[in-house]
């Protein structure tokens, strides 16, 4: 079994020929069908839904949101759900983590004076504070060789996603201009050790 071969599924599995096993599997399948028929719509997402609550976004909608290009239009229903519904947030983060080049649910390294650094997988993120009128700078170094195109940071229901420019000598540089609300929010989230970071 540890060496997956080319052959079609094994037809000699003794359990396949055991009528008791087949009956047990059929019994379960029929039970599941009956169970599904008795289930009220909306039960499936695993939570109680009140009449006035909007429907929980489906997996496809969450996935489209997780894979959107930075700055692309967003599905407001998904955004609303991500603000108010912890289960949707959990699912969304699982989707993000599943496609991220690297991600960290919280900061491993503590901030150190004016310079905050955190490790995200094989990457090191540094926040260089504002100086002489220049905005704070996010520097991302390291990595596994796979290019990253965007960064998303989130904490609770706050999340921000920004595109990353092409790397310069192996480092991605992003100015966190306080005049740009999104950049400013990213800077503040990155400074918070509790925020999750996804490199996409």
């Amino acid at each position: 079994m540890s060496d997956p071969g080319r052959d079609e599924p094994d037809r000699d599995d003794p359990a396949s020929r055991d009528p008791a096993r087949l009956l047990a599997e059929l019994h379960a399948a029929r039970g599941l069908m009956r169970d599904a028929a008795g289930r009220a719509p909306g039960d499936a997402a695993g939570g109680v839904q009140l009449g006035e609550e909007p429907a929980r976004p489906g997996l496809a909608a969450l996935w489209a949101h997780a894979t959107r290009a930075p700055g692309a239009p967003v599905d407001l229903a998904v955004v609303r759900a991500l603000r108010g519904d912890p289960a949707a947030q959990r699912r969304y983060r699982a989707l993000l983590a599943g496609q991220a080049v690297a991600h960290a649910p919280f900061a491993v390294a503590a901030s150190d004076g004016g310079l905050a650094a955190r490790r995200v997988g094989a990457y090191v993120l540094e926040l260089v504070p504002a100086e002489d009128g220049s905005p704070p700078l996010l520097v991302i170094r390291g990595g596994s060789g796979r290019a990253i195109a965007a960064i998303e940071a989130s904490l609770g229901d706050a999340a921000v996603r920004l595109a990353l420019p092409a790397p310069v000598e192996g480092a991605y540089l992003l100015a966190l201009d306080p005049a740009l609300p999104e950049a400013d929010r990213l800077g503040r989230l990155l400074a918070d050790p509790a925020a999750a970071v996804f490199l996409l």
Partner: peptide, 25 residues
């Protein structure tokens, strides 16, 4: 629910998940 599967497709999926597919599950 998400895919609005027909009753037959739901039953098929339930069978695949429980393993009630032969000759090989």
């Amino acid at each position: 629910e998400g895919r609005a599967l027909s009753r037959e497709d739901r039953a098929w999926l339930a069978r695949v998940v429980t393993g009630a597919v032969r000759p090989n599950r």
